[in-house]
Amino acid sequence: MGFLVQLLAFILLPLLVSMSAEEINSSQPCDFLALFNFGDSNSDTGCMAAAFYPEILPYGQTFFHEPVGRASDGRLIIDFIAQHLGFPFLSAYINSIGTSYRHGANFAAGSSTIRRQNRTVFEGGSPFTFEIQTEQFNQFKQRTGKFFNKARKNSFRRHFPRPEDFAKAIYTFDIGQNDIAAAINRVGTEDSHAVISDIVDYFGKQVQYLHELGARTFWIHNSGPIGCLPVAMPVHNAMNQTPEAGYVDENGCVNYQNDMAREFNKKLKNMVVKLRAQFLDASLVYVDMFSAKYELINDANKEGFVDPSEICCGYHKDGYHLYCGNKAMINGKEIFAGSCDDPSKFISWDGVHYTEAANRWIANRMLNGSFSDPPLPITHSCSAQ
Rank of each mutant, 00 (worst) to 15 (best):
G46Y: 03
C47V: 07
M48I: 14
A49P: 10
A50E: 06
A51G: 05
A51W: 02
F52M: 00
F52H: 06
P54K: 12
P54T: 12
E55S: 14
I56V: 13
I56Y: 08
L57K: 13
L57C: 03
L57D: 13
P58A: 06
Y59E: 06
Q61R: 14
Q61A: 13
Q61D: 12
T62E: 05
T62L: 00
T62Y: 06
F64L: 01
F64A: 10
H65M: 02
H65S: 11
H65P: 03
H65K: 15
H65Q: 13
P67M: 10
P67T: 13
P67I: 11
V68W: 04
V68K: 12
G69Y: 03
R70A: 08
R70G: 11
A71L: 13
A71C: 12
A71M: 11
S72M: 04
D73L: 00
R75V: 08
R75E: 00
I77D: 06
I77S: 10
I78S: 07
D79A: 11
D79I: 13
F80L: 04
F80T: 11
F80M: 02
A82S: 12
A82N: 09
Q83P: 07
H84Q: 12
H84I: 04
H84R: 15
H84A: 10
L85I: 12
L85H: 04
F87Y: 10
F89K: 15
F89Y: 15
L90E: 13
S91C: 06
S91T: 15
A92E: 02
A92Q: 07
A92W: 01
Y93K: 13
N95K: 13
I97P: 01
G98F: 07
G98T: 09
Y101W: 03
Y101A: 00
Y101S: 06
Y101F: 02
R102H: 08
R102Y: 00
H103F: 12
H103R: 15
A105C: 01
A105Q: 02
N106Q: 09
N106M: 00
N106G: 07
F107E: 04
F107Q: 05
F107P: 07
F107W: 03
A109R: 00
G110E: 05
S111V: 12
S112K: 03
T113P: 00
T113L: 00
I114T: 03
R116H: 13
R116F: 05
R116T: 15
Q117F: 01
N118Q: 15
N118C: 04
T120D: 02
V121A: 14
V121D: 06
F122S: 15
E123R: 14
E123M: 07
G125C: 03
S126D: 00
S126E: 02
S126V: 09
S126G: 06
P127F: 01
F128V: 15
F128T: 14
T129E: 03
